Structure formats: C-alpha cells, structure tokens
Amino acid sequence: MFEQTPFEGVTAHPNGVVVNPGQKELRSRLLLDAMGHFSPIVQQARQGKKPDAVCMVVGSCAIGFPKNDSGDLIVSFTPLQNQCQYFWEAFPARDGRTTYLFTYLDADPDRPTLEMLFEDYLRLLPEYQQVSLEQLQFKRALFGFFPCYQQSPLQPQWNRILPVGDSSGSQSPLSFGGFGAMIRHLKRLTEGIHESLQVDALDRRALALLQPYQPNLAVTWLFQRAMSVGANQKIAANQINQVLSGVFKEMSALGEPILKPFLQDVVQFPALAQTMVRTAIFHPGLVLKVVPQVGLPTLLNWLIHYGNLAGYSALNPLGRSLQPWAKKLPPIPQYYVRRWFDAWQYGAGGDYLE
C-alpha cells in the first residue's frame, strides 16, 4: 500500500484487483490481506460473526526485578478468579524483564474488561515475580485481545483476494496471533503464491488451497475449552490447574520429543495419542471432570478432528513419496496436487523442525 493512504476498498475484476478505486488506485493481479483480525475485508467475509473465543492479554516491560535469565512459557499459581483462569509468561528483556498475564474466554459481554485484567496483573505480579511494585520502573505496557474463530483458516470469499497472517485466522486458539503461524508457514505460502501467479490459479477455489483445513489446529479447540470456563459455568476453583498439571506431567514423562512441539504450537498425532492414553490411565478422575466442563458436542466434534489428524499423518508420507511424480504433471494440476501435499504435511504437524 502507499504510505499515508488509508485502505478504502477493493474491487475484484476478472483480470485483477483495484485497491481504492477512483482514488489513488493500486492495481494488481492478487491482493494479500494482511490487515489483521479487524481487516474490513475479513469483517465483510465473516459478516459480523461473534468470535468463538477470545484470548485477553496484558503485560509490561520493567526494570528492577531480581537478576533472572530464565523464562516462563505458561505458569498458573491462582485458582479461578472472575470466572477466569490466569496464566503468566515471563522473559528476560534488554530493558529488564517482560511479563504477561493472559486468559482464555468466550465473548460474553459480561466478561472482565482489559482495565480490570490489568488491575489483577498489578495485584498479582509481586507474588509471581517475588518483587514489590515499588521496586519496578515500568518502561512499556501492553494490553489487547485476540479473537478466535472455529471457521479458520478463513477461506477466500472472492477471487484474487487471499487473507494471510491474523487476517486468515491460521493460528490455534491457544496462540497469541497469526504472525507466528504465518512465519512457520512462510515457505509454503511464498512457494504456493508464486505458483498460483505463475499458472494464473487466482480464483477463490484455487486460493483456498493456500489456507487449507488443518486438523492439528482444529484439535486444539478442546484444549482451549479445557483451559477456560463459561461465564456462568460452575467448576471446582482449581480444576483447570489440576488438569494441566496432570497432562504436563505425562508429557514431561514422555520426553522432549512429545513436549517441545506442543509448546511451540505444533500438535502431532503420535504425541497427542500417547499423551491422551497416559493421562487417561494415570489420571482417570481428571479426564472425567473435563467432559462436563467442555461439553459433549465439543468432545464429539474434537473426535472428528482427531480422526482427521490421524488420516493426515498417514497421508503425509504418501505426499512426500509422490513429489517426483507431481513434478511431471501439467502446471495447473501440479499446482493443485502440490497444495494437497502441503495441506497433509502442515495439517499433520509434519513441518515441525527442532
């Protein structure tokens, strides 16, 4: 886009797109929408649909903490508060230490505001980091929220317009946004977009293959539900902490090859299956508590995605073995076949690298 020129609209034509028609026009064969969750194109595509879940996050970077070069990915030390389970992250930073408080919610209007969440952050931060607020000098503050939709990644609704990053919703409901997901998918996206332009496969059906269904992301909706509680739901105050403690204990016992991909937001069928079996064997009571918490429809829907994850895991090696054959196909069929191979690989977590 041009600098100091707001996006006003885009018109898709049979042979290209025109951004800001009638003004300072920009013409192209393909528009990549990287304007985020609140992109006007995405809002039109989703037609005002309410998010299925929200991740709220507040935090700061400050100096004055005791010397600490370690980091936390996910820490919980309090029971449910305000119908929220609070999770924390902390990392060393150039200007001291960065700390975050985040929680998973539904989009009920009675949920706490970001201001209320920030108040709890400041109240609980001393206990979390063993430091008084008077010792800290805050350099920066952060607050925001990330909407999550089960209808993700968002399929292109129009020819020649492709959502990427947060616009596509290609992240799991556990992660903080689509930027990291886009980075992990960068090779697949750049090669796929290049091929689509080369062979002129720019209609919505062809572009949809660049943001395919990924069962390894879909299965994480069950985890999001297990780490949150409904606005009016009643569960034991420490139930979520107990469930997570049990699950992470078994993942840790299985070793880094199981635990590390999950912590990097990559779910793979063998790791998930082993974790679920061990948790069911050693913590059957916790599993029984989760079922009414997440609800039977959510569990049944998860079983479908779990089965698809197994199927994609079986198809991924087949896709790799057929790569030489695919290169002999004509350009258009080759584009489609290669996108299917990519979908199997990434949908199974086969893109994961140590």
Rank of each mutant, 00 (worst) to 15 (best):
M1H: 11
F2G: 13
E3G: 14
T5N: 06
F7K: 05
A12W: 03
H13E: 11
P14D: 10
P14Q: 09
P21L: 08
G22H: 03
K24N: 13
L26N: 07
R29V: 11
R29I: 07
L31H: 02
A34V: 09
H37R: 13
S39N: 08
P40D: 09
P40A: 09
I41P: 01
V42Q: 04
Q44E: 14
R46H: 04
V58I: 04
G64N: 07
F65W: 09
S70L: 15
I74L: 12
V75F: 08
V75S: 07
L80Q: 08
Q81G: 15
Q83P: 10
C84G: 15
Y86G: 13
E89R: 14
A90M: 12
P92R: 15
D95C: 15
L101Y: 09
Y104V: 03
L105F: 08
L105Y: 05
D108C: 13
T113S: 07
L114R: 00
Y121A: 08
R123C: 09
Y128L: 13
V131G: 02
R140M: 15
R140L: 15
R140N: 15
L142V: 13
G144P: 02
G144I: 05
P147N: 04
P147I: 00
L154R: 00
L154E: 00
Q155T: 00
R160N: 01
I161K: 01
P163N: 01
V164L: 04
D166F: 09
S167F: 02
S168K: 02
S168D: 02
G169N: 03
S170H: 03
S170A: 10
S172F: 01
P173R: 04
F179P: 10
G180I: 10
M182E: 11
R184L: 11
R184P: 10
R184S: 14
K187L: 14
T190H: 10
T190P: 07
G192T: 06
H194I: 09
E195K: 08
D200K: 10
D200E: 15
L202Y: 03
D203A: 02
D203S: 05
L207A: 05
A208Y: 05
L209A: 08
L209V: 07
P212E: 00
P212M: 00
P215A: 01
A218M: 07
A218D: 05
A218K: 07
L222F: 08
F223C: 10
Q224G: 11
A226T: 12
M227P: 09
M227K: 10
N232C: 12
K234M: 06
I235Y: 01
A236L: 09
A237N: 09
Q242S: 07
S245G: 06
G246L: 00
G246V: 00
L254D: 04
P257D: 08
L263C: 04
V267F: 06
V267L: 05
Q268P: 02
R278F: 00
A280L: 03
A280G: 00
F282G: 00
F282L: 06
L286T: 04
V290P: 01
V294K: 06
P297I: 12
L299W: 11
Y306D: 00
N308C: 09
L309Y: 00
G311Y: 04
Y312D: 06
Y312H: 05
L315R: 12
P317K: 01
Q323R: 15
W325Q: 13
W325Y: 11
K327S: 14
P330W: 05
P331F: 06
Q334N: 12
Y336I: 02
W340P: 03
W344C: 05
Q345C: 14
Y346H: 12
Y346C: 08
G347I: 01
G349S: 10
G350S: 11
D351Y: 10
